[in-house]
């Protein structure tokens, strides 16, 4: 079991403070070349609602459901 291995908020904060104490921000800013390789892939946006239904569904839902003005 995982007893004693959970990082608490206070230990996170301590680590963060120590990190700041070490003045690592400049280091971190200098090392920004961590991005994955650039190899674009097209992703066509999918159609999930027909145009006519696109307009009607929210109206129908608002008609049925309370708390929504039609």
């Amino acid at each position: 079991m995982d007893e004693g291995l959970t990082l608490t908020r206070s230990s996170q904060q301590t680590e963060l403070d120590m990190g700041k104490d070490m003045n690592t921000d400049a280091h971190l800013d200098a090392a920004q070349d961590w991005l994955p390789p650039e190899a674009p892939l097209e992703m066509p946006r999918q159609v999930l609602e027909r145009d006519s239904r696109r307009a009607e569904w929210p109206r129908l839902l608002r008609l049925i459901l309370p708390g929504k003005a039609v």
């Binding site: 994955p36 390789p37 650039e38 190899a39 674009p40 892939l41 097209e42 992703m43």
Partner: peptide, 8 residues
């Protein structure tokens, strides 16, 4: 991610 790097 996929748009930028998916081809790899």
């Amino acid at each position: 991610f996929i748009r930028r790097s998916g081809g790899a």
